[in-house]
Design a protein around this nucleic acid. Structure first.
Length: 363
DNA sequence: GAGCCGTGGCA
DNA sequence: TTGCCAAGGCT
């Protein structure tokens, strides 16, 4: 293998090995921006179908700016980290108002938009405009930590700054786009977390970790704390006449902010020793007191649909789900709403609720 | 700095 | 089953 500088070897490899991804068809800064936001903490394979669908509906920055927020949510449904969609939506509206619809090339201007941090600002401006800015994500932290055998926790701000400095020093003027993408592509295709493919790596001969046999023990990352258990009771109320269900909008801030849900509440102390009938009657009385639209009504029939466990990044829901039948829709106000099967598909739910729908409601 | 904020794949 | 991970940002 012909060898040169890290930068040269990396860019040469990238030109040959780069994947054809939908956001690499051109250098439209809007498309690249959307892709970068979707890719935050999310795998490429998961993003591709979402990106295609999103760009089909919102092909231009203006079309996204003009869209209704609830519709944007619907196109994000299932991707997670929903504040990304809200921030992106609000940011493109700001670009329309303040920059005449053109993604600002100024780092300070672009970086100040909601949802745009150091990484995203560097990535979009380098990839779309070829600006010589570092774009340090998880891939780059790993690749650089190995190439330079950095033994420190890569999650710390200090180490991150070190890596930013190293990348800045390697950045080739005029090839920033290819270089930044090359670092990330290397992390995704060869320099992977578990078993790096060093034999195929274009910069293995530059790699301090490989020389010292440290390639699988680097980078060092602090361990994340385990998600905390939350016990919930949820009631899927449904009318006997047309099968409408009662849904509720979640608060604008916090977990699954602004999305819709099957009404639920903190379960009283979980006591598995209780008889089923005791638990069921408790859920019934809670449903009647906690769900405002059901207050003073009669539940025709109620039974347990099962227990659903859903793990978020920092929390685990253990949710007992009940089905309650009522004769017809009752009066209801926000945040509650009765929706029929067709209307339901227009609302955005967290995946745990969609799973319950899939398993218990006719599609 | 540390906690919050989703999801699905995989060992 | 559990833990780890994947192109982070906000408070």
């Amino acid at each position: 293998m012909r060898t040169g500088t890290i930068t040269g070897d990396l860019v040469r490899w990238y030109e040959a090995a780069r994947r054809d991804l939908p956001w690499r068809l051109d250098s439209d800064p809007y498309r690249i921006w959307v892709s970068e936001v979707m890719l935050q903490q999310t795998r490429v394979e998961a993003v591709i179908p979402y990106f295609e669908r999103f760009m089909g509906r919102f092909p231009t920055l203006d079309s996204l700016a003009a869209a209704d927020g609830d519709e944007v949510d619907k196109f994000w449904e299932g991707l997670g980290y929903y504040s990304r969609a809200r921030n992106l939506h609000s940011a493109v509206r700001e670009v329309c108002e303040r920059y005449e619809g053109t993604v600002p090339a100024s780092y300070d201007d672009f970086r100040s938009l909601p949802g745009v941090g150091d990484y995203t600002a560097g990535a979009v401006l380098s990839i779309a405009y070829n600006q010589p800015l570092p774009a340090v994500d998880g891939n780059v932290l790993r690749v650089i930590a190995r190439l330079f055998a950095i033994p420190d926790d890569v999650m710390s701000q200090k180490t991150r700054k070190t890596v930013v400095g190293i990348v800045s020093g390697l950045l080739p003027v005029g090839r920033a786009s290819a270089f930044n993408q090359a670092l990330m592509e290397l992390g995704a295709l060869l320099c992977m977390p578990k078993s790096p493919h060093c034999a195929e790596c274009p910069v293995a001969h530059h790699c301090a970790a490989r020389q010292r046999g440290l390639q699988t023990s680097l980078p060092v990352r602090a361990r994340k704390s385990a998600p905390k258990d939350v016990h919930l009771t949820a009631v899927l109320a449904q009318t006997a006449d047309d099968g409408s269900i009662l849904v509720r909008r979640r608060p604008a801030r916090g977990l699954l902010a602004g999305l819709w849900e099957i009404p639920n509440w903190a379960a009283p102390e979980p006591n598995s020793v209780d008889l089923e009938t005791t638990v069921l009657s408790a859920a019934r009385s809670q449903a009647l007191s906690n769900m405002e639209p059901l207050r003073g009504r009669r539940l025709e029939e109620m039974h347990c649909l099962g227990q659903y466990t859903h793990t978020f990044s920092h929390r685990r829901w253990i949710m007992s789900v009940y089905h309650a039948q009522v004769d017809a829709r009752s009066h209801c106000r926000e945040p509650y709403r009765w929706v029929d099967r067709q209307e339901r598909t227009m609302y955005t739910f967290g995946q745990v609720f969609n799973k319950i729908f899939r398993e218990h409601l006719a599609q």
